[in-house]
Every structure is written in structure tokens, then in C-alpha cells.
Amino acid sequence: MSKIRSLVAGALGLLLTASAATAQDWKAKYPELVFGKIPDENASGTTSRWTPLTDYLSKQLGVKVTLRIANDYAAVIEGQRAGNIHIGMYGPASYARAYLVGAKVEPFAIEVNSDGSKGYHSVLYVKTDSSYKTIEDLKGKNLCLVDPNSTSGNNVPRFMMSKMSIEPDKFFGKVIYAGSHENAVIGVTQGTCDAAFNWWNTEDESNLMRMDRKGMAKAADFRIILKSDQIVNSPMAYLTDLPADLKAAIRKAVLDLATNDPETFNKIYEGKSKPYAAVDHKAYEPVVELIKFVDSLRKQKS
């Protein structure tokens, strides 16, 4: 019996040694990892919200994890395609675009709403005291979109408008890319735009509600006149060619974040979300098809 125990202990020791050696291998190759985030709010807000996560990942992985706030959505896509961003926090459409342009990325975690759902909506906001009741009332007026690679701020709106036989560049007086969801709302507040598309999860959580909590806008000043079907929630994705052990470590750290470090998790989502759930590419195949459709509209126009 003691001989068997010795053999088992020896085998376990070899496995642990091999595992430790593998970890040391990827730590030597990747002494620093870069976490890229699309700019869905202003830079200071993004830094405040996401820096605790990169600090947490640094501790969990044992290597430095640096936050990179992209200037636009395309910067995260290009950063991952070039291999300079190891982990990216995307919107669904920007992930789909990364996939379509050949970036070797894998989604591994998805945001989960407070009600347990894994989807959100694109909504069209106007000011509460305006006369606009439907999108048709906005003919000749100015529209704020977010970014060409934004799901709720461009691609889903263009898909919806196409189904309604609305050609945005002909229908509206101006179509303006605001650069972020916050800027799109501010555009309506300041009168640059008469309406703006934005993301909306539930009555309790949306970009507008976040802005209200930060004192950047008053939710009561806006109302919704158009809402999309549900869109699959945003993914976190890492480079496909990262070592398997490193990917497993990243995945575990992220999926365990809400349990291991609830303060950091709640800093990101302000207590309005449930823990991340595992996900893979299949969940985003409908979004890939959506992007192909929007691309076809652009080609027809040109």
C-alpha cells in the first residue's frame, strides 16, 4: 500500500512540476499582457471603471496586465489583429468585425444582466419635451450615431432603418458619428442632434442611466421612440494563439471575478450585472451575418 501511495505521490509531483514549468514558459514569453477596451464612455470613466480589473488580473496571472483605452472601436480590432492586444473587451459588432477581418480571437466571457438575460437593445432617444413620436417624424433632422463598429450605435440602427426603407444619409439632415455612447447623448442634450441611438439593457440599466448616476445627463430628459430586438451581450475575447494554459488562467480569473473580487466587479457594472458567463463564437454568428448585411448596404450605396 505504501508503495502505491509513493507512486501516486510521485505521479502527482511530476504533473505539478510540469504544470509549473508550463506556466513559467508562458510567463517568460508574455511578461506583460495588454487589455484593450472599446471607448463606449469618456477616457477618464473607462480608466476608473476598468483599471481595477487589470490590477486583479495582474495578481491572478502573476504577470503585469496593462489597460489600453482605444481611441475608437477599430483600434481594438487592429490591436488584436496585430497581436498587440492580448485581451479585448468588445461590443458584439466590433467582435464580429474583428472576426471578419481575420483577427485570430476567441470570445470566452459574456456580460450577464441583473435579470439573468444575456442581451440588450438599441434604442433611439429624443428629448422628452420634443414633438417627435416616431422615427418618421425626424425626417430632415440631425441624427447622432456612435461609431461605425458600434452594435447598438450604428449597425443595428442601420439594419432597422433599412427594414423601414429609410436611407439615413438621404432621410436625415445630418448623420454624425459622436465617437462614444456618452457623446451621442450629449449631442442631443446640446442640440447638435435631434435624436441619438444608444444601448439599453433594462429599465434599471442603460448608458443613459449610468450618465444620470454620474451627473452627466438626466434620464428624465429623454424618451425612447424606437427599440430593437434583443442583441447578444458584449464579449471579452483573447488571442487564439495564446498558450492553452494562459487562456485557461485568463478565462478562470475573469469568470471567477465576481466571487474573488466583488468590489472590482461592482466597480465595472455598478452592481447592475450578474457574474460573467462562459461563451464561444457560436453565440455571435448572427451578429457576423448582421455585419455582412450592413456591409452590403454600404457597397450598394457606393
Rank of each mutant, 00 (worst) to 15 (best):
K37S: 12
Y269R: 09
V123E: 00
H121F: 15
Y284P: 09
A103Y: 02
E78I: 09
E270T: 13
Y56F: 14
D194A: 01
V63W: 05
F293D: 00
A196D: 01
K214M: 14
P31Y: 02
S273L: 05
R68T: 13
Y56G: 00
P243D: 12
V175E: 06
Y30V: 10
G13K: 02
I77T: 11
A178V: 04
I268Q: 11
P275F: 09
L239A: 02
A219T: 13
D169K: 13
A70S: 15
F159L: 13
N149T: 09
R251W: 00
N113Y: 01
L239I: 11
R81P: 00
S180D: 04
D25V: 11
S2N: 12
A18L: 15
K282E: 13
D169G: 01
E270F: 13
T240K: 15
M89K: 10
K218I: 11
L7Q: 12
A43M: 05
K133E: 14
P92Q: 06
K104F: 04
K292Y: 02
W199Y: 14
K141R: 15
P168W: 04
K274H: 10
N266C: 07
P235A: 10
M236W: 12
L143A: 01
C144I: 11
G173S: 04
S296A: 14
P39C: 02
Y269N: 13
M211P: 03
I85E: 11
A220C: 07
S152A: 15
K292M: 08
S94R: 04
A219N: 05
D204K: 15
F265A: 11
N233C: 11
F197Y: 15
A244Q: 13
Y30S: 05
S296V: 08
Y120K: 06
M1F: 10
T259Y: 07
I38R: 03
N84S: 10
A258N: 09
I224K: 14
A184Y: 06
E289D: 14
S234G: 01
G83I: 03
P107V: 04
P157F: 12
W200G: 00
G91S: 14
I291N: 13
I69D: 06
R251S: 14
A220T: 14
S114K: 14
A21Y: 13
T46R: 08
A253I: 06
G187H: 08
